[in-house]
Design a protein around this nucleic acid. Structure first.
Lengths: 208, 208
DNA sequence: CGCTAATGAATGACGATTCATTCAAACAAG
DNA sequence: CTTGTTTGAATGAATCGTCATTCATTAGCG
């Protein structure tokens, strides 16, 4: 299912594409994909129902495009945030903090990632999510780097660790989305979570 | 939304309730809640469409009941698995192993938990999932126990750690569901993940 | 016979998508 | 500058298919 590639030129002409994506972000976040009506998105975007189909192939395509674009932003920002850090342990902590901060600043996107990214076969299975993998691979990259530098133990499987680390952060953000009151600050949670993993992966002092 | 309480007596009479739940498990797992038709569930359960409504209030109720029952089982099994273990660190490792093993043995349930547990406002926000919280609280219970015994550091926030730990396991199981080939065995993953957390939470040797 | 469980065809609502029509801007000709 | 013509973006009412749910009917059992 190639999503609107042919129409990418239109993006330059008008802001409608953007307007629709942003409206969809809000609507999907509030009601979930299947409970959102295309007409609601249209209304929120100040656009006629039919106009949506000039910019997107169908409802699915709205969601997928939304992802691609937003994940692209997230990837960029994360790379930027990590640029200044060199120590692998510090990088992991930075990653955690940046991740939670971004999602905190963009609640709506966080909800969509939480809820719809998982959305069954439809979106996860048959649509291989490159951007998401790239994101995960930032983590394993840091871990491998740490291993080469002799900071992290060699018996750590980066493929397991990256998922565990991401999963831990992700569960934290799910909690924040679902619960109205936040018991822990972003910074504290990021610090604790990265501390678990860093301590868990460090080369033993006596062994080193 | 109280789900079929009035009808709970019927469960005793026939196996239809069970049959429908099991059919729904299969169907929801394969297609996701919103893409599953009630008639498909009926067919899979060898029951007429209308019969479903003798046992469940509506489609939503099927999903919620399914959860309640299956999560109940999972909770029971987990408690049982932990009974024989006393050391908090060992308990955590046991938890991880048991969790991954259960989901591995019941792929379909794993998919539903993955996909539908997240299912939007509709199910997670307004339906407070007791069983799930109980499950998470097993983890924080172990951590608190460890802290009291002086094995785990006191500065660990059990509320953060339980989510981080669960999230790590959960992400691992998501990976297995979505990817056809399993690169890591349940045992290895369980061992690695619990090791991160245990090492991360242990009281420092020199400080102790 | 009653009485309850079960059936499955019929109903009705809903909502994604379409497409005939409108509208405004761009251009051309006088 | 004015008027006529073309173009394609935008509109939104109408369409059409798809199910969840209902309920009149039947089957089965004591």
């Amino acid at each position: 299912m190639g999503h609107s590639i042919l129409k990418s030129d239109k993006k330059k002409n008008s802001d409608k594409h953007r307007r629709i994506i942003e409206a969809a972000l809000k609507v999907f976040a509030k009601k979930g994909f299947y409970n959102s009506k295309v007409s609601e998105i249209a209304r929120a975007a100040n656009v006629a129902d039919g106009t949506i189909y000039l910019y997107f192939q169908n409802k699915d395509d709205i969601l997928i495009s939304l992802f691609e674009e937003e994940m692209g932003n997230i990837l960029d920002k994360m790379h930027q945030a990590l640029q200044t850090v060199t120590d692998p342990a510090a990088k992991l902590e930075r990653f955690a903090d940046q991740h939670l901060t971004m999602l905190e600043e963009n609640q709506e996107l966080a909800e969509i990632i939480q809820v719809e990214l998982r959305q069954s076969s439809k979106f996860m299975k048959e649509y291989q999510n490159d951007r998401f993998h790239q994101y995960l691979n930032i983590i394993s990259g840091i871990i491998k780097e740490g291993q080469q530098m002799g900071v992290f133990r060699k018996d750590i499987l980066p493929g397991v660790a990256k998922r565990a680390f991401f999963g831990a952060l992700d569960e934290m953000s799910r909690y924040w989305i679902l619960s109205p009151v936040k018991k822990y600050s972003t910074a504290v949670a990021a610090q604790q979570i990265s501390a678990f993993f860093i301590k868990g992966m460090l080369v033993d002092p006596q062994t080193a």
